[in-house]
């Protein structure tokens, strides 16, 4: 079992195109599985990108296990992996095995070892026969699974998921959620699928770059669902 990872946002300020997205944002995570909810534009993706060290805060620090995750990229690719909403934004290589092996060569493995690692991950998911498959011949759900495998092949301690299953059909979501449930990694999971977060250790609800509620999934998700239903009934809240 993996120990919980310590992630911290310390007085983080982020401005994009002159707009304050986060202003003195503080957050400490030590739970194994953390859910993130909030309306479109509330800042979930930016929080995910900050945590993965993809964007630099204007002020403050984002640390994982004490490492400055934006600056220390060697630690970053050892500690954290991120799954984007659109697999086509994530997949760099034209075949499955190449995509999986890439991350491993990035971690310093030789090509042969990287390929072996990719094969191993594929086998662990029961997808050994996918190795040579061109990405183009995979369905959207299958591409999501490729992204998940590519992230897990690198064996990060923390996996960040930014609405990874939006737009998929219910059976595919159920299957991918089951895969995720079996994963031993720490998760930080932004989602609109509240049921997927119900058994998490902690749920954080953000609005306009601020934490609105934070705590037990039961209480936070119930209030969030209720508020969303009310906002939906309201005529002009878009």
């Amino acid at each position: 079992m993996v120990n919980p990872v310590h992630t911290s946002f310390e007085d983080v300020t982020l401005t994009l195109d002159g707009r304050r997205i986060f202003d003195g944002f503080d957050l400490e995570l030590r739970e194994r599985r953390v859910g993130l909810v909030g309306r479109n534009g509330s800042g979930k993706s930016m929080l995910a990108r900050l945590a993965a060290g993809l964007v630099a805060p204007d002020h403050g620090k984002v640390r994982i296990e004490g490492a400055d995750i934006f600056r220390d990229r060697a630690e970053a690719i050892r500690l954290v992996g991120i799954l984007f909403q659109n697999p086509d934004h994530q997949i760099i290589f034209p075949t499955v095995e190449e995509e999986l092996a890439f991350g491993l060569t990035q971690q310093g493995l030789g090509r042969r070892a990287a390929r072996a690692g990719a094969t191993e991950t594929l086998a662990a998911f029961g997808k050994a026969d996918w190795a040579e498959r061109p990405i183009a011949t995979l369905s959207q759900g299958q591409r999501h699974l490729v992204c998940l495998m590519a992230v897990l092949a690198m064996a990060p301690r923390l996996v960040i998921l930014d609405e990874p299953f939006a737009g998929l059909d219910a059976p595919t979501i159920a299957q991918l959620t089951r895969r995720l449930g079996a994963v031993e990694q720490n998760l930080l999971h932004a989602s609109h699928d509240l049921a997927a977060l119900a058994d998490y250790d902690r749920v954080i609800w953000i609005e306009a770059g601020r934490i609105l509620r934070d705590g037990d999934p039961g209480a936070v998700l119930a209030e969030y669902a209720e508020r969303m239903a009310r906002a939906g009934a309201d005529e002009c809240s878009l």
Binding site: D72, R73, E75, I77, H89, F102, Q106, G108
Partner: peptide, 23 residues
Amino acid sequence: DDAEHVSDALRARGGVRPPASSK
């Protein structure tokens, strides 16, 4: 827009100059 996403994807996995050798 695509290019920005790819640059994210690349950075998320160590970027063009992989840092793995340093540690």
